[in-house]
Amino acid sequence: MADHLPTLLFAEHDDASLNPVTARALTAALALGAPVHVLVVGENARPAAEAAAKLAGVAQVLLADGPAYAHRRAEPVAALGVALAGQYGAIAAPSTAFGKSVLPRIAALIDVMQVSDVVAVIAPDTFERPTYAGNAIQRVRATDATKVLTIRTAGFAPATEGGSAPIQPVDEAGAFAGSRFVGEEIATSARPELTAARIIVSGGRAIGSAENFHSVVEPLADALGAAVGASRAAVDAGYAPNDWQVGQTGKVVAPDLYVALGISGAIQHLAGMKDSKVIVAVNKDEEAPIFQVADFGLVGDLFQIVPELTAEIAKAKG
């Protein structure tokens, strides 16, 4: 019976370190009730594997390390997943750019319909997932013997540390010559990462320029120790980088505090942040839909309010 088999969880990492969303996805994977093996795939990825081995509840870490897996291109990583699939009752990954690219490829090759963006595990074969930008929650039973799941991590608490799982090397599962890595532009920032942050400050179209993001939004984020996010309009206009986009088709976050500056509150934006614990909105239009989800609203010009707020926060933390 497939549901006696262990669960394979893909780690999200950059070889050198483990991304905190992995610990959240682990909580979802453990809820399936079977032992969880964490697969770390990459090149020179032992540090990430060692970090994964420390997570409480991990039965085993599998390390697939080699040049074929550099930059985790979807095709060779999926081939590895397919080679391992027969030993597992479920295959899961966090809903990141990596997980979203790789898991459907595995699902198709083992003839399984994937359940995307799981927000609740009801039973080992029954899950809840949002559709229509989070406006309708579907409860589905997956009838395929093997479950393939991507996990929306914002709603799962991170598994704690304290484990010491063995690290098992796994063999390469065939190279793929049809695609090549050319280059990457990855921003490094001293700020917390959006999907892991306890506090997020996001700016919308009203911020008006990239320069204003630096001079208005970022000082408030720094005073709060927060990550910075943005609406689609701000990203499309080039005020903020693409990976700051929060929403239905960007990142989904649920921090303790979300501060929306000059964001109207379109359903596609709300889809990405409405599960935050406390929401604050600053908007000059008192009718803006964002106020319908905000716990605390400040009506007025953000260019006047935000510097004052930044000073007040600094004073409060003093």
């Binding site: 929650i137 409860r139 505090l257 409405k274 106020f291 905000a294 605390f296 707020l309 926060i313």
Partner: peptide, 30 residues
């Protein structure tokens, strides 16, 4: 289909909170 749709429900809603008068007042609430 491979997924059996058991139910479709509305997500837990949020209710609008309060408007505050100033940044200082906001910080108190936070």
């Amino acid at each position: 289909p491979r997924l059996q749709l058991l139910s479709t429900t509305e997500p837990a809603g949020r209710t609008a909170g309060i408007k505050v008068g100033s940044p200082a007042e906001l910080v108190d609430h936070l």
